[in-house]
Amino acid sequence: MAVDIAIRARGLARRFGTHFAVKGIDLEIPRAHIYGFLGPNGSGKSTTIRMLCGLLRPTSGTVSVLGNEVPRDAEIVRRKLGYMTQRFSLWDDLTARENLTFMASVFGLARAAARERIALRMREYDLGALMEQRAGTLSGGEKQRLALAAATLHEPDLLLLDEPTSAVDPQSRRDFWESLFAIVARGTTILVSTHYMDEAERCHRLAILDLGSIVAEGTPQQLMNDIDANVIEIISEDMAAARRAITGVAGLESAAQLGTRLRVMMRTDVAAPQQVLAAKLKEAGVPAQVNATSASLEDVFVAATRLRRAAQSAAGAPS
């Protein structure tokens, strides 16, 4: 009986005018997991999240959230759903406490229960000193804690977070993620969209979105293991020369500088890529160290988005 899938989508698509923001994606998000949407701006993350909570109607495809069909049963889902918008959307001219009290009564919490729950969230999210402050005067991190407290007041089964950490400092982001793990431990499913690699890496599972499609899906570890490229690191004194030396090597997919290192991705059909690069550098007279290394999530992201786009445009060019 217990449904292990919190969100299931089939062929989900959304068109704005002539442009498809989401182009037929399939999703299966397991319960009590943190599921990440990783993608650049305009990849369809927000549009997908909005379709999942019934804010936008899909152009085609079906969605089932917590066993209810959306948008048909959106009202039922809304009672079990917490939603944090990309922009802070509580009321700036109300105090933190007034905002929480309002949200509690809107979600139908009785007065005593509401007071208790607000006090609990206040302790959990360290809002004690801020309760009587106007929300508009809070810092980015404080606003975000308040928004999370508001979104979880009614103990939702599903939490949708649309780029929750975009206006927040690194320490607050760490704390925020600690809170998310505490929430998911209570059995809540969390769907979070982000464009930060470190955040994506913290998710149980993740989907990489690009131009409205899912281009890779799995656990972060799986994605890094299964990357369709060899990752090689070149360490050299003269990065510019090293970069020049390897330009044009057959099978080179990308090269990105990280401080004194050059991170290079080679196609898997190139045999012994490390030796190929070392030979090229030697030929150009650039002293360098060349090491094979394991893929990071960023490599996966680059491979999944940029390389795929390049391949597509190359394939599409003749026609």
Binding site: E75, T85, S89, L90, W91, V106, G108
Partner: peptide
């Protein structure tokens, strides 16, 4: 304009 409505309409308020 301020984005409050996007939050409000995901709540049970009709």
């Amino acid at each position: 304009e301020r984005g409050n409505l996007e939050l409000l309409i995901t709540t049970p308020v009709s």
